[in-house]
C-alpha cells in the first residue's frame, strides 16, 4: 500500500449565515491513493460540492473550513496562505466544473487561456515561450479528442459545442500535469452520447497518466462505471464508503439502498418505484442523532443518538442498523 496522496480527516466546512450555522460538511474523513478514482455521490445539498471546493481552497464567505485537516502529499492545506494555495491549485490539484460555459473566459481564445494557465505556474517549470505553450495546449486538446487542435486554439469558447467546451476544460485541467483532479458533475449538462465519450476519455487519461480523480456526481450509474471506490454523502456526512461494486451490490446504509431502489433501472417497467419518503432535511435544522432517521424505514429510538461507525473490511458506514446485521 503506497502512502495516500490525499488524506482528509474530520473536515468541517460551515456556512455562518444570518439564519444560523449550516454545517454543509460535517466531519468528513477519507483518503485517496495516487491514481485512484473516487466517486463522491449525493443529492443536492448533501455537501458533495462543498467538499470538493474545500479541497481546492475555494470556499467563499460566509463559508469557511471550521475544523479538520486536508493533507495533500504530506502538506497541510487547511490554513495555507492564499499565495501558497495558488501554487498548488491548477498545478498539482486541478478542477473541472459542471458548466464549462461559466469556467471559460468568453472574450479570450482557448489558446490564450491555456497559455495563461501554463504561465501562471512558471515558477514550477520555468519560463514558457508562446510557441511552447501553444504546442503543449495543442497536444492536450488532441489528448482529449478535439480534432484539428492547432487551428481550434484560435477559437473562442462560444465556437465550441457544449461537449467540446467540456473537453477544453478538461484539457486545461490536465495542462500542468496535476496529481489530482477534482471534477464536480462534469457530464451532468451533457447528452448521453457525449457523456459516454467524456467518461471513456477520463478513464483512460486517469489510467495512463496516473492522475487521481475525485468524481462528484448525483448519478450512481456514472460513478459505478468509472470509480474504484465510492463515498455516499447525506446532510454533510459520509454515510457509507467502500469499493464501488461491493457498496452497490450490498449497501450497508439504508440511504444507499434507498437511492439504488429509486432508480427506474432497478424496477420492472410500469411498476411503482421504491421511494424514499420525504425530502432532505434543512442543514439549518438537522434532526438530533442520525439525519436520515426521519426518512428511514429502519429508524427506531436508538436513531435519535449519533450513529456509530460500522467497520467492515474495506468499508464503513454510519448507522445504528446496518443492513447486513438485519439478516
Amino acid at each position: 500500500m503506497t502512502a495516500p496522496l490525499l488524506e482528509v480527516t474530520d473536515l468541517r466546512t460551515h456556512f455562518f449565515t444570518r439564519a444560523g450555522i449550516a454545517r454543509a460538511v460535517d466531519g468528513v474523513s477519507f483518503s485517496l491513493a495516487p491514481g485512484e478514482i473516487l466517486g463522491l455521490v449525493g443529492e443536492s445539498g448533501s455537501g458533495k460540492s462543498v467538499t470538493g471546493f474545500s479541497l481546492i481552497g475555494l470556499v467563499d464567505p460566509p463559508g469557511r473550513i471550521a475544523g479538520g485537516s486536508i493533507r495533500f502529499d504530506g502538506q497541510e492545506l487547511v490554513g495555507l496562505s492564499e499565495a501558497r494555495m495558488r501554487a498548488i491549485r491548477g498545478k498539482r490539484i486541478a478542477m473541472v466544473f459542471q458548466d464549462p460555459q461559466a469556467t471559460l473566459n468568453p472574450v479570450l481564445t482557448i489558446g490564450t487561456q491555456m497559455a495563461l494557465a501554463l504561465q501562471a505556474h512558471r515558477q514550477a517549470h520555468g519560463r514558457v515561450t508562446d510557441r511552447a505553450a501553444a504546442e503543449r495546449a495543442g497536444a492536450m486538446l488532441t489528448r482529449v479528442g478535439i480534432p484539428e487542435a492547432a487551428t481550434r486554439l484560435n477559437n473562442y469558447p462560444h465556437e465550441f459545442s457544449g461537449g467540446m467546451r467540456q473537453r477544453v476544460a478538461i484539457a486545461m485541467a490536465l495542462l500542468n500535469g496535476p496529481e489530482l483532479i477534482v471534477a464536480d458533475e462534469p457530464t451532468t449538462a451533457l447528452d448521453v452520447s457525449i457523456q459516454a465519450q467524456i467518461l471513456a476519455e477520463m478513464k483512460s487519461i486517469a489510467r495512463d497518466s496516473g492522475t487521481a480523480l475525485i468524481w462528484i456526481s448525483h448519478d450512481l450509474a456514472t460513478v459505478s462505471s468509472l470509480a474504484d471506490r465510492v463515498l455516499v454523502m447525506y446532510a454533510g456526512r459520509i454515510v457509507e464508503s467502500g469499493p464501488v461494486g461491493a457498496v452497490l451490490r450490498a449497501p450497508l446504509h439504508p440511504y444507499t439502498r434507498g437511492l439504488l431502489d429509486s432508480l427506474p433501472a432497478m424496477a420492472q417497467p410500469g411498476q411503482r418505484l421504491a421511494q424514499i419518503p420525504g425530502s432532505a432535511p434543512s442543514l439549518l435544522a438537522l434532526p438530533a442523532g442520525c439525519p436520515f432517521a426521519p426518512r428511514c424505514a429502519h429508524a427506531d429510538a436508538a436513531c435519535t443518538t449519533p450513529p456509530p461507525r460500522i467497520d467492515r473490511p474495506g468499508r464503513q458506514a454510519l448507522c445504528h442498523h446496518p443492513l447486513d446485521a438485519a439478516a
Binding site: A200, L220, S225, V244
Partner: peptide
C-alpha cells in the same frame, strides 16, 4: 443502439467497464 450503449449502467460487478460511445456530435 448507440444511445442505449452510451447510457452508464449500474455496475454491480467489479469488471472493467468499456464504453461504446457514438462517435462525433449532432
Amino acid at each position: 443502439q448507440g444511445l442505449l450503449d452510451s447510457v452508464p449502467k449500474l455496475r454491480l460487478d467489479a469488471d472493467a467497464v468499456s464504453f461504446h460511445p457514438i462517435a462525433g456530435e449532432l
